[in-house]
Amino acid sequence: MRRAISRLKPLWLVPILLGALLGVLGVLDVVPDFVAAVPPPVIVTAIALGVVLFAVHPRAEAHQPHRMAAPVRGRWAALNTPGQQLPSHGSRFLGQYAAVDILRPTTPATPAKLRKAWRNSTPQEYPSFGEAVYAMAPGVVTATWSRSRDHRARNTWQSLVFMLVLEGSLRSVAGRAALLGNHVIVRHADGTAAVYAHLRRGGVAVQKGQQVGVGNQLGEVGNTGNSSEPHLHVHLMDRANPNAAAGLKMTWTDITRSEEIEPSLAEIAKQPEPNAVLSMPRNGEIFEA
């Protein structure tokens, strides 16, 4: 039942978006007469039902982490990782139950995570931007999106507040591309599928229907979609349609963990929660792939 409801997420968005539109029209005092004639309880019920059904996500049965290759090469740091807790991103939306974000360790030239300024840093200022992204397992590309532009980071106080309060919510209801940005989905022989998100515009290197092998390049790291700075977001699902998918745990078999903490992520580097995937790096941990 959960999967059937979740598959219809675009439908449940309709009353939510109509409710938002009515709110704007109400503020402007230009609500059409035929809409004003609808009893308010009917409108409120429809919106509430849409919100409740939109929040229904599938859940996978208990399973061991799927063994995969890392999607990058070299030194990287993890955050929002299943090595810290589950759900790693605080949600099961779009199969993200055990998603992980990774980025290159900072250098002296890397912009601060948060600074006092009027303009945000450009994506080109970050060491992760343009880095190659590789397939974690062999499979066939089932979807790509490459039209989103690389936006500036969200590393000023005003932009970070905007992202946390409004932008993230708007992207969540605006569709998969608005949230994931440029992305690639690869379906594997066992029916699982991996999502590679926030890729650079012009950097997607594959097309739908293409067969890829483990280690084949899929694209480049960018700063598209719901991203505060250039990084790679990856997650594994039990099917290729994110709206109907349950998130799956995975582990990378070809990484060396250093137990070293990236200084810019030291504040979130804590002991893993009891449900964490202990074979994956915890928040802030640097690893070599």
Rank of each mutant, 00 (worst) to 15 (best):
M1V: 13
R7V: 10
W12R: 11
W12I: 13
I16R: 03
I16L: 10
L22K: 02
G23K: 05
V27M: 07
D29N: 12
V30R: 15
V31I: 14
F34P: 02
V35N: 09
P40C: 08
V42D: 03
I43Y: 02
I47H: 02
A48P: 00
V51A: 11
L53Y: 03
F54R: 00
A55K: 01
A55Y: 04
A55L: 13
V56S: 00
P58R: 00
E61D: 10
E61P: 01
H66D: 04
M68K: 00
P71M: 04
P71K: 05
V72R: 01
W76H: 09
A77G: 13
Q84P: 04
Q84L: 06
Q84S: 14
S91F: 03
Q96V: 07
V100E: 15
V100D: 06
D101G: 09
D101Q: 11
D101W: 09
I102G: 07
I102K: 02
P105T: 10
T106A: 15
A117V: 04
A117C: 05
N120I: 01
E125P: 04
Y126K: 01
Y126D: 01
F129I: 06
V133G: 04
A135F: 11
P138R: 05
S146T: 02
S148V: 09
S148D: 13
H151I: 05
R152C: 13
R152F: 08
R154T: 12
N155H: 03
N155E: 02
L160T: 09
V165S: 07
L166T: 08
E167D: 15
S172P: 02
A174Q: 03
G175Q: 06
A177Q: 08
L179K: 02
L179W: 06
H183I: 00
R187A: 15
G191D: 10
A194V: 06
V195A: 12
V195C: 09
V195L: 12
L199W: 07
R200E: 10
G202H: 11
V204T: 12
A205R: 08
V206I: 08
K208G: 06
Q210N: 06
Q210G: 00
Q211V: 10
V214C: 14
N216S: 10
Q217I: 07
V221Y: 01
G222N: 00
G222R: 03
T224W: 01
T224R: 03
N226R: 13
L232T: 07
H235F: 04
L236T: 11
M237W: 06
R239H: 14
R239E: 15
A240E: 15
P242S: 14
G247Y: 02
T251A: 12
T256N: 04
T256A: 07
R257T: 05
R257D: 09
I261W: 00
I261R: 01
P263K: 02
S264L: 14
S264P: 01
L265W: 12
E267P: 00
A269Q: 08
K270D: 09
P272V: 05
E273H: 12
N275M: 04
V277E: 07
V277N: 03
N283P: 01
G284W: 07
E285C: 04
E288T: 15
